[in-house]
Simulated assay, not measured.
Amino acid sequence: MTSQPLDRALVEEAAKKSGLLWVRGAEASAARAVWHVWHEGAVCLVGDGPGEQPLPGLADGGAAEVTVRSKDKGGRLVSFPATVTELAAGTPEWAAAVAELKGKRLNAPDAERMPDRWARECRVLRLVPAGPVAALPDGDLAERPVATPATTRRPVPAALPKLLARRRKGR
């Protein structure tokens, strides 16, 4: 856990309120946005399975850098180092974390069977804060987005804004 009581309080409050954070594993080159829950003093994640978020560079016993964003403005609130622990499926710790994660998982195709699928095909990780919070940076930390095959099909037609404006006037 972080060393200062105020650091712990800041990390906990920020992680509880934000539904999205950025995680960079020790072996990963870029931070990745992930959804999470705050449970029993740690950030809990599920992923690395079909239809779930990827968790590259996060290994059991490894280290990670976690950055929590503001829910309303989207800006950086706090960054802290964390220790990664993979929870074994079927343990009481795993069941408690999965119960919290299940409530936050949106648009799951198999809501009732989701914990069974997670036990078979996914990893559930706990990221426990391990050190003081990092100082806020002075400069811009923007990075290129992670490569993805997802693209738009074609550019927006030039006449579309005019058509939409005309439709609004007709109402």
Score class of each variant (00 low, 15 high):
L6K: 08
R123Q: 10
K16P: 01
Q4C: 12
G41I: 04
P54T: 06
L58F: 07
A59F: 13
V146T: 14
G131T: 04
S3H: 05
L20P: 05
E143C: 09
A89M: 02
L21V: 09
R113V: 00
D7V: 07
G74W: 08
G139I: 12
V133Y: 00
T151W: 07
A99H: 06
L21M: 13
P129W: 12
R126H: 10
T85L: 06
N107R: 14
V128C: 08
F80L: 11
S79A: 15
S18L: 03
E12T: 14
L77K: 06
V37E: 05
V11R: 06
G90E: 06
A165K: 07
P54F: 06
S29F: 14
P56K: 02
A165N: 03
A82H: 03
A59D: 14
A99R: 09
A165E: 10
R32F: 08
E52K: 02
V156A: 14
S70Y: 10
P149F: 07
W38E: 07
R123M: 06
L164G: 03
V146E: 14
E86R: 14
R168H: 06
P157D: 11
L136M: 13
N107P: 00
S79E: 07
V98F: 01
L106E: 09
K71F: 11
E65N: 02
S29R: 15
G49C: 05
G61T: 13
A159K: 12
P81A: 07
S3Q: 06
K17I: 05
E143W: 09
A59Y: 09
L21Q: 09
A159L: 12
W22R: 15
R117D: 03
G57V: 07
P5V: 11
L55T: 03
P161R: 14
L87I: 03
G75L: 09
T148H: 09
E112P: 00
A165G: 00
P137F: 12
K102I: 01
G41V: 04
G61P: 13
A159H: 11
R154F: 08
A31D: 13
A14G: 12
R69V: 13
T91W: 04
V133H: 01
S70D: 15
P92E: 00
T91R: 01
E143T: 15
L127K: 04
E52G: 05
G51A: 06
V133A: 06
L87V: 01
A14E: 03
L6W: 11
T83V: 13
A147K: 13
L20Q: 08
R32K: 13
R126Y: 10
G19D: 11
A30T: 14
A119Y: 05
G75M: 05
L160A: 14
V84Y: 03
G57P: 07
P92A: 01
P50G: 12
E86W: 08
M114P: 02
S29Y: 12
E112C: 00
L164H: 03
K71A: 15
R117T: 02
E121W: 07
H39Q: 10
R76F: 04
R113T: 00
R144F: 11
G51K: 01
R171I: 06
A135R: 11
H36F: 11
W38T: 07
T151R: 12
G61H: 14
G61S: 13
V98E: 05
T151Q: 11
